[in-house]
Design a protein around this nucleic acid. Sequence first.
DNA 1: CGTTTATTCCGAAACGTTTCGGATGCCGCG
DNA 2: CGCGGCATCCGAAACGTTTCGGAATAAACG
Lengths: 343, 343
Amino acid sequence: MTTLKDLSRHLGLSVTQVSRAINGHGDVSEETKRRVQDAAKLLNYRPNVSARRLVTGRSGIVGLVLPGVPRYAEAAFQMQMVSGMSKQFARHGLHFMLHVPDESEPPVSVYRSLVSSGALDGLVLLEPMVKDPRIAFLKSQKFPFVVHGRTYPQADYPYFDIDNEYVGYQLTRLLIDQGHRRIAFFNHVNRLTFASARRRGYLRALKEAGIKPEPRFYRSGVSTEGFGLRETVRLLEQKNQRPTGFIAGNPAVTKGVYAALRAFELSVPDDVSVVAHDDMMPDVNLATFEPAVTSTRSSVEGSAEPISDFLFGALSGQPVEELQKVVTPEIVLRESVAPCVDY
Amino acid sequence: MTTLKDLSRHLGLSVTQVSRAINGHGDVSEETKRRVQDAAKLLNYRPNVSARRLVTGRSGIVGLVLPGVPRYAEAAFQMQMVSGMSKQFARHGLHFMLHVPDESEPPVSVYRSLVSSGALDGLVLLEPMVKDPRIAFLKSQKFPFVVHGRTYPQADYPYFDIDNEYVGYQLTRLLIDQGHRRIAFFNHVNRLTFASARRRGYLRALKEAGIKPEPRFYRSGVSTEGFGLRETVRLLEQKNQRPTGFIAGNPAVTKGVYAALRAFELSVPDDVSVVAHDDMMPDVNLATFEPAVTSTRSSVEGSAEPISDFLFGALSGQPVEELQKVVTPEIVLRESVAPCVDY
DNA sequence: CGTTTATTCCGAAACGTTTCGGATGCCGCG
DNA sequence: CGCGGCATCCGAAACGTTTCGGAATAAACG
């Protein structure tokens, strides 16, 4: 292994100068900078991370702890995220550490031991919750982190999010504008901030239209096909006062809704209308549904990059204001919505 | 942050003794060992990884580089693997680093920069190929690694594998024993060692039964539902000399085979027989197929643990012979096989 | 010519750990 | 009493890097 000392000997320079040349600090002539870089390449020099970290206090490693063990449905989503981040961090010269906690470990204690191990420079948090002890802990430790999503009302840390209130609102409006007034919403579990934001949007749209929200129309749970199917069936079984519009939290849920609708021989959009949010997973495409479903959409894949960039920014001392972003999903109109006909 | 020096001052001992006490080296009395441990807990001492690594040359981090960017179908498989390993490595006190390479990066160069960065103690390799440059490289560097699967004829490194020759052989025998002689095999891509091993088993069983292998019956490709469907259709289109038995490499392929068979109004097992290998992914269960499919089976989830253990073993100097294992999949008989009737 | 200033360099200390070689004290043995 | 052996301890060096404070040289200025 080549060390700085080897290089300095090879070049007839001091270790100091070689170090400065390599890290691009001033105080070194163009001439030597060039010579050093050539020699470094020649001798295949790689700085020793541990030595560097020992003195700088930085490890060059960032981490992610998966929220819960991935079940099949979530695996694709998480992989998408994880691989996007790994790639982007690599571009910043950062290594990426993945930790999936044992079922038994209490959530914060994982974080506690991870930060106190000193192995990490920063963390990324997925699926923030409305009262999130992990965020509270990391803030109390002044440990750098970035979150995918955010806590409300205000978040004083780096984050990347989509406007989920907008998602809930627009999806609901899409139906209200066609005269629908009995609108079911199959949302993620409420404790997740993004689900609660969508819920707010849903309720606001209802209120604006003077519609009294019916509790039985709002359901939250893990967003699987089964969830969509079961809840739709549940609502259709009581013949009177069925919903005429359905909002699904993601494509999987939409699949379930469609299946249930088919089972009850209800046609979309002639009998009922359906809208959904599309997280643009590679394998399921709301455009290929029959009929194609009107949706808001935002790519989960696209969020991996900014998240990585923000954490990198935070580590290099960028001010938080520059490290917060919320993007507004676009709305794509397709064939699953029609004016309400009460049936 | 508490350091060894702090502890030694606090205890009136030398740094040396404190270090030895903590790492359980002999040469220190029970009495002091206890005192040191108490003090360490009290002052919340955490050894500085970088310092330790600088002198020992160990980082306590092991890594995995994903073979190719995960497409949807593989995501669940990879997540399963990754999370299992992360958990098991954690139990050994090892951190787990994940690298997913950019599409552009040439495969070995990823490994080269990873090992020469010095950030890792060891690597795990997935999906070995028959001529695998990664394995060659790591061996040339004497860098510790473990592989899921193995290269033939002999592998002089730690590995965990299932007996894939056996899988190919038994699956074929299951059909031959019922009188089938035209047997199609939809295998993974040949360059993967496990696929080529299964192929050998398939050919051996054929040969033993005096059946001349027909090239058009053996197809290899990425094991998706689409692959199984397309290849089955292709074989059924030419009416004469259709296969009477089908072997699918995994449940996804089986799904495709079943779908194609249905399309041609062929019934399992009355018209044709089907067998498959079951990698026991959580979401698809060959037992719930209609009819339930006879298969060999081995859990991918179950392999994450031994793989981690073996790498850990390799790092702690265990001899390779103790770090090699191949398990024999079990055979589960269900309803998808019947005696051959030529149709 | 003497003094300042800019440029380029260097020595040495420091980061927190492990470990080698030796030191100290004590006991039992011949 | 002297000596070997054992148990327990310690000082100091080493790992490879960054960085602080200053030194050396040359150019610029009055």
